[in-house]
């Protein structure tokens, strides 16, 4: 396929401009897709209603209408608020999302960055959003916001650990922290000498995958882990004092992060941009890799949203206990077991 060898050498600034544009697409498009497909439509069907139907065919332009609505809303902030912190909070949350998308590879040569500490970077920048949420909670100078912000921080740090420790099993198996090489390790892997479908780590790291799924659900503060924004107790938690566009930006951040976390789960456990039966070094994957990755991302996020619509909310104490008493010990056991198996075999 010579056509793809058009991939000529570009200057760094040209690459960066293209990457920035693709990064914007990679952040905003999955967020919009998830909200329309799952939050609007799937939830409606699960609750025996139609969901948005007016804006565009089957309500497909509803999101644009929502953005238009939020753009026209008055921008208010409380008199008592710490203005700088209050205004800076959405910037921090969105910047964290944009840093997170960087590590995702979408093909053998299609990546934003290709560094040897990719997994590390992803897990590090994913916790920056905690700071943004704490800033929102503290800066609003409202009691509901403060409680919500602290709950969110407590929850996010508690589930950060299972998230990090669950990935450790993948790192042990692949023997690298480079996300691209983790994908290749799954593509070239073998299951007891049979390499027909490679070795997607969901098979050997099933426990890790489950822990990772629960942890990202909690990291996204999605139900059943939505204590920080529990409307029956603390209005909307750290978002209480936010209006209009700033309010919407937090939601864009949340759903964009949902998409990226799902894509990360797909990359770590489902083989990323690779589909079995093809040569992983083939140039074809630069073209279809992004589509494969999006498909797998939609699969994982379907699970996330399915849980979201199915289970009732945890209590705050149950939530912390699940993290510390179940998930952290389980993921430590997973690391030990994976280590032993890796050395023995």
């Amino acid at each position: 396929m010579t056509v793809f060898n058009l991939a000529i050498e570009l200057a760094y600034w040209q690459q960066t401009v293209i990457r920035s544009i693709l990064g914007l697409v990679a952040v905003l498009l999955p967020a919009g897709t998830l909200v329309y497909l799952y939050l609007f439509k799937m939830m409606s069907f699960m609750q025996s209603r139609l969901g948005p139907m007016e804006a565009g065919p089957y309500g497909s332009l509803q999101l644009l209408a929502e953005v238009g609505k939020f753009l026209q809303k008055e921008d208010l902030f409380p008199r008592a608020a710490d203005r700088v912190v209050f205004k800076a909070a959405p910037f921090v949350v969105l910047a964290s999302t944009f840093l997170l998308v960087l590590v995702l590879p979408a093909g053998p040569d299609a990546w934003f960055i290709n560094i040897d500490t990719g997994v590390f970077l992803a897990l590090a920048v994913s916790s920056i959003s905690v700071i943004g949420i704490l800033m929102a909670g503290w800066g609003s100078a409202s009691k509901y916001s403060l409680i919500g912000g602290l709950r969110a921080a407590g929850q996010l740090v508690a589930y950060e650990l299972p998230l990090v420790l669950a990935v450790m099993g993948v790192v042990i198996q692949a023997g690298t922290l480079n996300v691209q090489e983790i994908v290749l390790a799954q593509a070239n892997g073998e299951i007891f000498g049979w390499g027909g479908i490679g070795n997607p780590f969901i098979i050997t790291q099933f426990l890790g995958f489950m822990i990772f799924l629960v942890a990202i659900q909690a990291e996204l503060t999605q139900p059943p882990f939505d204590m920080p924004v529990a409307e029956s107790e603390i209005v909307t938690g750290y978002l209480t004092e936010y209006t209009g566009m700033r309010f919407l930006l937090f939601f864009i951040g949340e759903f964009a992060t949902a998409g990226i976390f799902s894509a990360l789960a797909a990359t770590f456990f489902l083989g990323g941009w690779y589909i079995p039966g093809l040569d992983p070094t083939s140039n074809l994957f630069n073209l279809i890799g992004p589509l494969v990755l999006v498909g797998k991302m939609l699969l994982v996020s379907f699970l996330i949203f399915w849980f979201r619509f199915t289970y009732p909310r945890f209590r705050e104490d149950q939530l912390q206990q699940l993290a510390w008493k179940v998930l952290v010990p389980l993921s430590l056991v997973n690391i030990v077991a994976t280590g032993v198996l890796k050395v023995v075999f």
């Binding site: 920035s20 969105l94 964290s96 840093l99 930006l249």
Partner: peptide, 13 residues
């Protein structure tokens, strides 16, 4: 590129 992407996030907001 990491730095630039942080900047792109801030620019979008």
């Amino acid at each position: 590129t990491v730095l630039i992407f942080g900047g792109v996030g801030i620019l979008l907001v």
